[in-house]
Design a protein around this nucleic acid. Structure first.
Length: 491
RNA sequence: GCUCCCAUAGUGUAGACCGGCCAAUCAUUCCAGCCUUUCGAGCUGGGGACUCGGGUUCGAAUCCCGAUGGGAGCACCA
């Protein structure tokens, strides 16, 4: 056996690439959408819907539509329209069309009339609390029984501006006896008194989520709607609109809830905090925004891999930064140049020689990437090292200054030169890193908001804008500029 | 309270539709060893899970029922 087919004995490495399952009824191509609310840029939680939809459209061919759900003026952040598209571009999401719901008022109005005419919706002027309370009991409010003629009349009057916000609304009938209270009659259009950033005061009658989504999904030709489980009940409601209008439904799929701990994701809270200067902006490294992750050196491909790994199951999951970082490290490590960054720097003296030269590879496995060379001279020679590395060393401890030389520890801060044989390491030397006198000031901003200051070797200035590894510290992205300002990615 | 969804190791995930090939996959984390001028990478080995209770069956992670646990919704937000 061993002789005839040795390859059969080699344990096969089953590095099975986890793939997303097939989508039902997608063989002929798909039309899918991303429906963000332009209240702020995207955060890590949003990237799931963006990437999942993108992957399926790429797999089956078809169209991916970005639909800005901007039907609630007070929550809109005008710059979010652009920020969201920038985030999607960075993520590698290929969308084919961008549509604002605020450009489709007439469409919502036309279909409202159709629903009213068909007796599938009614105008209601009841106080919302009463209406909701009746619904809770499975009771109809008096308006529900009005005929299409009366309803259409009220509708015209609402459009004409005869009512103030809260005084009149258009409601889609579902089933008041539906066992699930969340599915009974829902408001489809209501009055809004505030101006819209894009349309100003032109429209006052605004559609609500479930209504505009159902209308748009059908009219835009969606074949598949892939979204979070939090929309399960919304799907139930939207299906009534499809039935009232005699439309065929798209395939709906709902993936599980993701809880993301230790990270502020609430757009509303972040916005307030930025205004109060408690965060430096949407890119603040403490945030889970796409922009912040980008700044820290997280690669879009890592985020994509992570969501593929998680899949589209309906199970609720906890987001794992650890797993995301693992993917990112795989991507970033082969190209990340190595540099020394000395935090908490202390001066040390190396005695017994007056000239040293260090040749350190920019990447240990890719020598072709080049070498960092440092010339040192003096009597003694002075370098800086991390305080914690050089304190409390018993006398004659073997300490190797990485890529420089071997030493034996003496008085605090004093090391005596002990050659440059690598065998020294086998003898149990402690390996530490260091920077020479030409080192430059450097600061690293951590995801928890801490600032770590120290010294980085000058050569790191050649890599501004790149993701590099500060040896024995972690991967960071160097901000473009003229000094070393690094954002910590992960270890 | 009502309704719905879900349940495999620390974290995710495959297997479940079509029960046996599952003494359960892969990744990550953790531990050990090797290698190595990083506490990085790599290699090798190891630890770690089918929520519980019934039922169907020769046989259940897989099918059924119940319990428990987690999550969502019940907005004139999206």
């Amino acid at each position: 056996m061993e002789r005839l087919a040795p390859e059969l004995l080699v344990k096969e490495k089953k590095e099975k690439v986890h793939e997303l399952p097939d989508l039902e009824g997608a063989e002929g191509g798909v039309v899918m959408r991303l429906a963000p609310n332009p209240s702020g840029p995207l955060h890590i939680g949003h990237t799931r819907m963006a990437i999942l939809n993108d992957i399926y459209v790429k797999r089956y061919g078809g169209r991916l539509i970005v639909r800005m759900e901007d039907t609630n003026p007070p929550t809109i952040l005008p710059e979010a329209y652009d920020l969201i598209l920038k985030d999607l571009d960075w993520l590698g999401v290929e969308y084919h069309e961008v549509v604002n719901q605020s450009s489709r008022f007439q469409i919502y109005y036309d279909h409202a009339m159709k629903l009213l005419e068909g007796g599938n919706a009614y105008m209601c002027g009841c106080p919302s609390d009463d209406w909701r309370a009746a619904k809770e009991q499975g009771m109809a409010c008096p308006c529900r029984d009005a005929g299409p003629r009366d309803n259409l009349g009220l509708w015209e009057r609402m459009l004409a501006g005869e009512y103030k916000p809260g005084e009149m609304s258009m409601i889609v009938k579902t089933d008041l006896n539906h066992p699930n209270p969340a599915v009974r009659d829902f408001v489809a259009l209501r009055l809004v008194g505030e101006p819209h950033p894009l349309t100003g005061d032109e429209f006052r009658v605004y559609p609500l989520y479930n209504y505009s989504v159902a209308i748009d999904d059908h009219l835009m030709g969606m074949t598949h709607v892939l979204r979070g489980k939090d929309h399960l009940n919304n799907t139930l409601r939207q299906e009534y609109v499809y039935e009232h209008l005699g439309w065929t439904k798209p395939h709906f799929h709902h993936y599980g809830w993701v809880s993301i701990e230790d990270t502020e994701l609430s757009t509303r809270k972040i916005r307030a905090a930025i205004e109060e200067a408690r965060y430096s902006g949407w890119k603040d490294p403490r945030l889970g925004t796409v922009a912040a992750l980008e700044r820290r050196g997280i690669q879009p491909e890592a985020i994509r891999q992570y969501w593929i790994d998680v899949g589209i199951k309906g199970v609720d999951i906890r987001f794992s930064w650890e797993n995301l970082y693992a993917y990112n490290k795989d991507i970033v490590d082969p190209g990340a140049k190595r540099y020394f960054f000395v935090w908490d720097p202390k001066t040390v003296s190396i005695t017994g020689t007056d000239v040293l030269e260090s040749h350190a590879p920019l990447h240990p496995e890719h020598q072709e990437m080049g070498t960092r060379v440092t010339q040192l001279s003096g009597d003694p020679i002075h370098v800086k090292a991390v305080a914690g590395d050089i304190q409390a060393l018993p006398p004659d401890t073997r300490v190797r200054f990485k890529d420089l030389c071997n030493t034996l520890s003496g008085e605090p801060g004093i090391f005596s030169y002990a050659g440059n044989e690598l065998s020294f390491i086998k003898e149990g030397a402690k390996i530490i890193h260091w920077v020479g006198p030409d080192a430059v000031q450097a600061k690293v901003l951590m995801p928890d908001g801490k600032l770590i200051e120290g010294l980085a070797e000058k050569a790191a200035l050649d890599s501004l804008g790149e993701v590099v590894q500060f040896e024995r510290f972690g991967f960071v992205r160097l901000e473009p500029g003229d000094e070393i300002e690094a954002y910590f990615a992960h270890q």
